[in-house]
């Protein structure tokens, strides 16, 4: 039951789109920064397979430039 947090960097001028894209996805919680071009993404999935698929989908988003992980817990 993995829980991860990331800093997510949007592509240029696509922060709002990225917030929208991520907010619509299952297992994702988003905390956008109000004064920087970055947002916090929390993923909380039932199993590693779902987590892997979710990350693959997120990484394919056109609005996302890159993800930097900040926390990982897989042994809940």
């Amino acid at each position: 039951m993995p829980i991860f947090s990331f800093l997510a960097y949007p592509e240029k001028n696509m922060k709002d789109q990225l917030i929208k894209d991520l907010s619509h996805m299952d297992y994702c919680e988003v905390k956008p920064s109000e004064n920087q071009d970055v947002l916090i993404l929390l993923t909380d999935t039932p199993d590693e397979e779902t987590n892997k698929d979710l990350i693959t989908t997120i990484k394919a988003l056109k609005s996302l430039q890159s993800l930097s992980m900040t926390f990982g817990h897989t042994d809940v």
Partner: peptide
């Protein structure tokens, strides 16, 4: 979850 958000 709170810990993960705080770390970020």
């Amino acid at each position: 979850r709170a810990m993960a958000l705080k770390s970020a």
